[in-house]
Amino acid sequence: MELRIDHVSKAYGGQAVLRDVTVTVGSGVTCLMAPSGAGKTTLLRILLGLERPDSGTVHGLEGRRLAAVFQEDRLLEQQDWRGNLRFVLGSAFDEAEALTLLEELGLADTGAQPVGEWSGGMKRRLALARALLSPFDVLILDEPFTGLDRDNRRRAAGSILARTAERPVLLVTHDEADAKALSARIIHLF
């Protein structure tokens, strides 16, 4: 499976954020690297269907199921981890499978504690678990290791690699260590 970003441009209020970006993403992990404020998140929003490009096209996403770890955790803060996973997975939520992944990620079962009371690193790992447990064809990761220490970063990278198989994973980061942790093919955007 291949994902092609073809001459995509986007501007906000006359200020160009993306200029004629062309990238091809194949199976495995591809990392788009760019400094902060260079439009990485805008590109991801276009891929996720949350923004329309001013010009250019994205091929290969038609009818595909997406999963994402956003720059922000975007969790239901008043709900516990089960509520957050059930919200996305619905009847496909498998508690045993979820607990296995959470354990892999170094998250203990916190019972009914709302995730709003969790630390930033715990929330980040739950956001990652949510994406990895959902049925996806393409996984999009925006700075997925933010707030994780070295051990947890290693665990998270291991879980991503183990659970994505041959499916395309698009990683966006400004930190080369993230790309190395996932053995990603690196593409410098700018």
Binding site: L48, L50, R65, F70, E72, V88, R130
Partner: peptide, 16 residues
């Protein structure tokens, strides 16, 4: 809005 976008990306049904 961020949660709504998340729900849209993960195709969460309206009822949920």
């Amino acid at each position: 809005r961020q949660l709504l976008e998340m729900a849209r990306v993960f195709r969460v049904p309206f009822r949920r």
